[in-house]
Amino acid sequence: MNNAFTNNGQKREPQNVFIAAETREEAERLAERIRSASDYNVIGIATDRIRMEEAISGFMPVDALITDIALNGEDVTPLFAKARQFNENIDILVYTTNTQDNAVIRAVLAGAMGYLLKGDQEDILTSMRLMRGGGSPVSPTVTRSVLKALQSRSNSPTLRAKKKDSTEIAPLSQREAEILALLAKGISFADIGDILSISPHTVTAHIKKIYRKLQVHSRGEAVYEAACMGILPDQHMLS
């Protein structure tokens, strides 16, 4: 299913996507998947830091970046901030095999809006569309790392002062509550659809609504905020 239209029925302009991967074969495979959708244009690929830096430095109109956390052994997360200098609204999705806590947290703090593991069940296009809608797709197996970072940040006096109360959010529907509980268990979007007998598109739509109501942008933030508000038991936060 393609998401070439906004919620009010207006046609969306396709996003320009640049892909950086460890091998050309992998970059081409990702490009082929992205090109299958009318709401995205693949404008280039790279397998090294230099080529990626050239692409995001204003020479190309890059709306979304899919990249590994390192190319040829070089950490590319410092380039995320540079990309935002030229397009502050750029969507950055890390697509990698790296599950180390420090790598996940480094990427998120550098500006990545999503973190997917290669071979995971989360579909790359579904994740891109969720990110474009304001969400942050994160693979279930790395959600723990994101939660740790959020928990650490929440301990600061400033963020504690801004902590939301459950009375400040719109109530979740029964279906949204069911999906949130499954998200908290680390279940993939695809499996949530199978469990609830609904389509992946419907799952994505519900998740966007959950994020909007909780005023968050990712699975990790949603679970953490919901637990803090008493919507979920505390043990969901880091289990």
Rank of each mutant, 00 (worst) to 15 (best):
M1N: 06
M1D: 06
N2V: 06
N8L: 14
Q10E: 15
R12A: 05
E13R: 10
R24I: 03
R24T: 08
E25D: 14
E28Y: 01
R29L: 02
A31N: 00
N41M: 02
N41W: 09
I43P: 03
G44R: 09
I45Q: 04
I45W: 00
T47V: 15
I50M: 13
E53H: 06
E54A: 08
I56Q: 02
I56C: 02
I56A: 02
S57Q: 05
G58E: 06
A64L: 12
L65C: 08
I66L: 15
I69M: 10
I69P: 01
A70V: 04
L71R: 01
N72C: 13
G73D: 04
T77Y: 08
T77Q: 10
R84W: 10
F86E: 05
E88T: 10
N89D: 15
I90C: 01
D91V: 05
V94D: 00
Y95I: 03
Y95N: 09
T96P: 00
T99F: 11
Q100K: 14
D101S: 13
N102G: 05
A103E: 12
A103K: 13
V104F: 01
A107G: 15
A107D: 07
L109W: 03
M113R: 13
Y115T: 07
K118Y: 06
E122I: 08
L125M: 15
L125K: 13
L125T: 12
M128A: 14
R129K: 11
R132P: 04
G133S: 13
P140F: 04
T141S: 07
V142G: 02
S145Y: 02
V146F: 01
L147S: 07
S152C: 13
S152P: 02
S156L: 11
S156W: 07
T158S: 10
A161G: 13
K164Y: 11
D165C: 14
D165I: 10
A177M: 08
L183R: 12
A184Y: 01
I192Y: 06
I192V: 14
G193S: 05
L196N: 08
P200C: 11
T204H: 08
H206L: 00
H206N: 09
Y211F: 15
Q215F: 08
S218G: 09
A222K: 00
V223L: 03
E225T: 10
A226Y: 02
G230M: 01
I231A: 01
S239T: 14
S239M: 12
